[in-house]
Deep mutational scan, measured.
Amino acid sequence: MVIEDPKTNKLIEVEKLPDGTYKVTIYDKKTGEKKTITMSKKDLEKLLKAL
Rank of each mutant, 00 (worst) to 15 (best):
E13W: 15
K7S: 14
K42V: 12
L44D: 00
I12A: 03
V2I: 08
M39A: 04
D19N: 10
L17V: 07
K35F: 12
E13N: 06
T8A: 05
K7A: 14
L11Y: 07
T38Y: 15
L44C: 04
A50T: 11
I26A: 08
K46D: 15
I12V: 05
K30T: 13
M39Q: 01
K41S: 15
K35R: 09
T38M: 15
Y22K: 00
L44K: 01
I12R: 01
K10A: 12
I37D: 04
T21C: 12
K46Y: 15
K23W: 09
D19Q: 11
L44M: 05
K34A: 10
D43R: 11
K35I: 13
G32H: 08
K49F: 14
K35M: 14
L17M: 13
V24G: 02
T36A: 11
L11H: 06
M39G: 01
G20D: 08
D19R: 03
K35E: 12
P18N: 10
V24C: 03
K7E: 12
T36H: 10
A50I: 08
I12G: 02
Y22I: 01
P6Y: 03
K7V: 15
T8R: 02
K35Y: 15
K16P: 15
K34F: 11
V14N: 01
E45Y: 14
Y27S: 05
L44N: 00
E45T: 07
D5H: 01
D28H: 03
V2H: 02
K46M: 14
K46N: 08
D28M: 02
E13F: 14
L11M: 12
I3S: 06
A50L: 13
P18H: 13
D43I: 07
G32W: 15
K49L: 14
K10D: 12
I3Q: 04
K10G: 06
D28G: 03
V2W: 00
K34P: 02
K10Q: 13
K7T: 14
P6M: 12
E45I: 10
T31F: 08
M1C: 15
M1Q: 13
G32D: 04
E15G: 07
E33P: 03
K30D: 06
E15Q: 07
L47P: 00
T31M: 05
T31N: 12
I12T: 03
I37L: 14
T25Q: 09
K29W: 04
M39K: 01
P6W: 03
Y27F: 08
D5R: 00
L17W: 08
D28C: 06
L11S: 05
E45V: 12
Y27E: 01
K34W: 14
V14P: 00
E33F: 12
Y27L: 02
T8N: 13
L44T: 04
E4Q: 02
V24E: 00
I37V: 10
L48V: 03
E13H: 11
L11V: 12
K46Q: 15
D5K: 00
E13G: 06
L47S: 00
M1I: 08
T38G: 07
K23H: 06
K49M: 15
T36S: 13
S40P: 05
K46E: 15
L48Y: 04
T8C: 07
K41W: 15
L48K: 01
S40D: 06
D5V: 06
Y22V: 02
K30P: 09
V14G: 01
I3V: 10
M1V: 15
D28R: 02
P18Y: 12
G32F: 13
P18Q: 11
V2R: 00
A50S: 06
I12M: 03
K29Q: 02
K41Q: 10
V24W: 02
L11A: 05
K23A: 05
A50G: 05
T25K: 06
E33M: 07
N9I: 05
L48M: 05
N9Y: 05
T38H: 06
L44Y: 05
T25R: 14
I3T: 11
K42W: 15
K30W: 10
L11N: 04
L51D: 04
K35N: 14
P18V: 11
K30H: 09
L48H: 00
K49A: 11
T38W: 15
T8K: 02
K42A: 12
K41G: 09
L48W: 04
K10T: 13
K35W: 15
E4V: 03
V14A: 10
G32A: 07
G32S: 13
K41A: 15
L47R: 00
K7Y: 11
D19T: 09
E4M: 03
K23Q: 06
M39Y: 04
I37Y: 15
E45C: 15
D28F: 02
K30F: 12
P6K: 06
L48R: 01
Y22T: 01
I3P: 14
D19L: 12
D28Q: 02
V24M: 05
K34C: 13
V14T: 03
K16Q: 13
E33L: 12
G32Y: 12
L11Q: 10
E15T: 13
D5T: 01
E15L: 14
V24Y: 01
Y22F: 10
N9C: 13
E4G: 01
L17C: 11
D5F: 10
K7D: 14
V2Q: 07
T31L: 04
D28I: 02
E15K: 08
E4K: 01
L51R: 02
K23N: 03
L11K: 05
L47W: 13
D19A: 12
T25I: 04
E15M: 14
M1L: 08
E15R: 11
D5S: 01
K16L: 10
K10I: 14
